[in-house]
């Protein structure tokens, strides 16, 4: 016996990463494109990720004018399964594929550049994952690496993109290790190399790494950059330039909401699961513990 599911569902996606938490609240109406009602991202810093997620979820509910009881499904991804109040958990590659496709329906792959890991996911037009590749136990070229560099250069992470675009003579960055590269950067500063040229050199070396990852996952066509670095115009420019130089048949895109891709995908999968379970006669009771 099938249970009645309202035509319109309210779901939440919570993506707990290693450096920030992302929350997306969505309204999913059958037969229509789902709507993002509230989406926010917050850095964890030295705090407890569970508390940061709790606080951010509350903020989003408030922005949307919802209560916890309005939400039919709280879907987590990343390390979100540590949250007691989640309904279900989804793997990062499926949520990023789904979220990526939602943001850019033409995308057939995503590259998620996070604080510690980068992953390339190739999918079809229905967000089915066809293949993926992930960086291993090494932070070379990660978001955290770039953040460390910022600290040494005395600039903020938001300034890095515009500065990179000002570069006229990028300085090649040879060191692969995220930590030993810092020494290289300090040496560059003392040799009088400008911040834009240092940053661009680093962007180029990072781009090379991401393109190899995309190539090994056999990405083609439109690739959406997601994760924290999708806002960095410098890395976007240098990724596309490197791809063109290597004649890789991909077109890189970003979206203002790229950073929310995992959370968006989770919320969408949550709505999908509510409907799927209803056809099997299962209704979900939401865990609303605070």
């Amino acid at each position: 016996m099938s249970q009645d599911v309202p035509r319109t569902l309210k779901t939440a996606g919570v993506d707990v990463g290693s450096s920030s938490v992302k929350v997306a609240l969505m309204v999913d109406t059958e037969g229509e494109r789902a709507q993002l009602v509230s989406g926010q991202s917050e850095r964890i810093g030295r705090r407890d990720p569970i508390q940061v997620a709790e606080g951010l979820y509350q903020d989003c509910l408030q922005e949307a004018g919802w209560t916890r009881e309005d939400v039919s499904y709280v879907a987590t991804t990343g390390e979100g399964d540590m949250l007691e109040w989640h309904t279900g958990h989804f793997y990062g590659m499926t949520t990023h594929a789904r979220g990526g496709l939602y943001l850019d329906p033409e995308a057939r792959a995503i590259v998620d550049i996070g604080a510690l890991h980068t992953r390339a996911v190739v999918m079809d037009e229905s967000a089915k994952v066809l293949g993926y590749r992930m960086t291993s136990q090494c932070a070379s070229g990660s978001g955290q690496f770039l953040e460390n560099i910022c600290r040494y250069l005395g600039i903020t992470i938001d300034e890095i993109g515009p500065l990179s675009l000002q570069s006229d003579d990028p300085e090649r960055c040879s060191s692969v290790c995220a930590v030993l590269a810092e020494t290289d950067v300090i040496n560059m500063v003392s040799r009088g190399i400008s911040a834009p040229n240092i940053i661009r050199g680093i962007h180029q070396s990072m781009s090379g790494r991401y393109l190899r990852l995309l190539a090994s996952a056999k990405a083609r066509g439109v690739v959406l950059v997601t994760g924290g670095l999708s806002r960095d115009v410098g890395i976007m420019r240098s990724l596309q330039e490197s791809a063109d130089e290597q004649k890789t048949p991909i077109q890189l895109r970003s979206h203002p909401q790229s950073v929310l891709a995992g959370a968006l995908g989770a919320a969408l999968w949550g709505a999908f699961r509510v409907r799927k379970l209803a056809t099997q006669g299962v209704s979900l009771s939401l865990k609303t513990a605070v």
């Binding site: 510690l116 136990q137 932070a139 955290q144 690496f145 460390n148 930590v179």
Partner: peptide, 17 residues
């Protein structure tokens, strides 16, 4: 559990929290 310095730093933060 981490090998990479940056990962060890993240593990340190996690364990402290």
């Amino acid at each position: 559990n981490s090998t990479c310095t940056v990962f060890a730093g993240a593990e340190l933060r996690e364990r402290l929290s």
